[in-house]
Write a protein that binds this DNA or RNA. Structure first.
Length: 583
RNA sequence: GCUCGGUUCGUAUAACGGUUAGUACUCAAGAUUCUCAAUCUUGCAAUAGGAGUUCGAUUCUCCUACCGAGUACCA
């Protein structure tokens, strides 16, 4: 008695799939999997004018990346997806390939008095619309007007037959009943009623290309494919009465699917639905994968290419308009399957929040293993001219300097172990894998530029002219006017000046020549502290100056950690460089 | 215009008709540190407006406002 759950995602291949579309597909998938049912992808390509090459493949690939894989549908090569249990009585899954199916259904409706042939040309109808609009009202092709138009209800039978047989630009239209209240149930919105007089006689089938419109194809295919629930975007709610009536007209009410209409994804700021433009403006992708417009060549960002994990993308999408009923926010796909419920889906549209999206990625990044992150980081390193080798023995040149992990600074070669240790150190600090480079580039490459002595941009006082006596580098913004910029003068002092330089050099000499112990970060940390405090030097000054010398920056990783990576020889080299550069 | 849908901190959301209206993101402050980040603590901040039903309304009803969708031989 209970039918097997079967839902479908039915995109139109008119362009790349928008993240809102992915969410719709996701909800369908979750609903089906939770009930042990089937998730089907059906390509609705009945509009021959709007076909975009590559769009269908894009859609499949995008869903695939998210882990939303169909039980039935087409794969990336356009082949029918096979499952063990099923010989696909429902195929094909592309509506353009189902063309022969639809005409008979449309004519069945004509025979039953639920539809009629319409011979009005598009131009004629546009004229009527324009005229009505000029007169201040709206033209609708329905009970009120169909009696005065050219169709099989007004023309003599002979004429109708002649036109149907000899001309090719007619359509079959649904004969919307007059003054009937259609009562509908939506799984998310509850009871909805509409009077049919506010609806028009929709075109169901077009003789010109012998294709159905969405409405006919949708009902026929959902019926033939034994769909039990239709979960789709809110934009379809206004045509739900038509769909109800079509099921009635076909006599399929007993197997009519249940409907759920999802609210839209809205732009982060202002009003309106999320669009590509918002993404460009605010710097976040609106598409799952990057997309190159085949006509303009324009490339749009994708979550995948921007460094998002598919798990994070799926998770954040799921939480946009749905909640589990408790405070949990992190869900894997299988967990979502478990927890999902249509009655926890929000009725109102959800504004997309790019900050929260990043937060999700950060959370998933932290959950990844160091090995996995390293594998993703290696290509980033390579793009910066760094070579990563699996074994330190052969690949490093003679004279390569090793300290701990294995690094050859002069030839930009590092072992995987070294990279893994770096990842371990920085994984808490990034949102994307690519951030690791920004955080830790100086672990691989010595700095050539030095920050403005650590003075924070935006500190508000950073535009004073440099004192010719104090600064060591003409580019540096250093201040000694303690009356007007005491904070900055003090801070600049902390980072670099002749005194600090001397102290740093002493630290370097000590570590590189006298100190023979371990270069492990925790040990080194104690050693440095003991040494500096023993000399009664100010920790802050020395450490920050060292950081500037070693990294070129005023902020970043701990000094001991940095030294534990670069080792004594590189330490000495960088000190020599900074001395020559900054004096 | 008409039809349908929607409205809780800036955002996403929670709250049997009874709560000091909760949580997360963002933001701010403090703690910590050699700096930054992370972390921890604290804080800012909401029931669109008006009637009605009720002992009691974020929750139910109606009106207004605002937002969205649809109004194609597009999906």
């Amino acid at each position: 008695m209970e039918r097997r759950t079967r839902v479908r995602f039915a995109p139109s291949p008119t362009g790349p799939l928008h993240m809102g579309g992915v969410r719709t597909a996701l909800y369908n998938y979750l609903y089906a999997k939770q009930r042990g049912g089937d998730f089907i992808i059906r390509i609705e390509d009945t509009d021959s004018h709007r076909f975009v090459p590559g769009a269908e493949q894009y859609i499949i690939e995008a869903l695939n990346w998210c882990g939303i894989v169909p039980d039935e549908g087409v794969d990336q090569e356009g082949k029918v997806v096979e499952t063990a249990s099923d010989r696909h009585p429902h195929a094909p899954y592309r509506q353009s390939q189902r063309r022969p199916i639809y005409r008979q259904y449309a004519e069945q409706l004509v025979d039953a008095g639920w539809a009629y042939y319409a011979f009005d040309s598009a131009d004629e109808l546009n004229e009527r619309r324009a005229a009505a609009e000029a007169a201040g009202d709206t033209f609708m092709y329905n009970a009120a007007s169909r009696g005065s138009l050219r169709n099989s209800l007004t023309l003599p039978e002979e004429e109708v037959r002649r036109l149907v047989e000899t001309t090719t630009d007619w359509t079959i239209r649904f004969k919307m009943p007059h003054n009937r209240i259609v009562k509908m149930e939506d799984l998310i919105r509850g009871h909805v009623e509409v009077n049919t007089d506010t609806l028009d006689d929709k075109v169901l089938w077009k003789r010109a290309d012998e294709l159905p419109t969405y409405h006919l194809a949708n009902i026929v295919d959902d019926h033939l494919m034994e769909i039990t629930e239709v979960i789709r975007g809110e934009e379809w709610l206004p045509s739900l009465p038509l769909h109800y009536l079509l099921y009635e007209a076909f006599g399929w009410t007993d197997t009519m699917p249940r409907f759920a209409h999802l609210s839209l994804l809205l732009k982060p700021v202002g009003n309106g639905k999320l669009s590509k433009r918002d993404g460009d403006k605010l710097g976040f992708p609106v598409f799952p994968l990057a997309w190159k417009n085949p006509e303009t060549g324009e490339v749009s960002h994708g979550y995948r290419e921007d460094g998002y994990f598919p798990e994070a993308f799926v998770n954040l999408l799921a939480m946009l308009g749905w909640n589990p009923g408790d405070d949990r926010e992190l869900f894997t796909l299988p967990e979502l399957v478990q927890a999902f419920s249509l009655d926890k889906v929000q009725k109102a549209g959800a504004k997309f929040n790019p900050d929260k999206a990043k937060w999700y990625n950060k959370e998933y990044l932290r959950m990844k293993s160091t090995q996995e992150l390293t594998a993703l980081f290696v290509p980033v390193l390579e793009s910066h001219g760094i070579q990563v080798v699996d074994c330190p023995c052969n690949a490093l040149t003679a004279g390569a300097r090793f300290e701990g992990f294995g690094a050859d600074f002069s030839n930009h070669i590092f072992t995987r172990e070294y990279v893994e240790a770096v990842v371990e150190l920085v994984k808490e600090r990034g949102t994307f894998v690519a951030d690791f480079w920004d955080i830790a580039a100086y672990i691989f490459v010595a700095p050539e530029q030095f920050a403005d002595f650590g003075i924070k941009a935006g500190a508000g006082l950073a535009d004073k002219p440099a004192d010719p006596n104090r600064p060591i580098d003409p580019r540096a913004k250093v201040y000694d006017d303690t009356a007007t910029a005491p904070f900055l003068a003090k801070d600049a002092d902390k980072f670099w000046n002749a005194d600090n330089a001397a102290l740093c050099q002493e630290v370097c000499n000590y570590i590189c020549e006298e100190y023979k112990g371990s270069m492990d970060a925790p040990v080194l940390e104690d050693v440095l502290e003991t040494y500096i405090k023993g000399k009664e030097w100010p920790m802050g000054k020395v450490m920050n100056s060292l950081r500037l010398a070693l990294t070129g920056a005023a902020s970043g990783l701990g000094i001991a950690a940095i030294l534990s990576f670069i080792g004594r020889a590189e330490f000495a080299r960088r000190m020599a460089f900074v001395a020559q550069r900054l004096g």
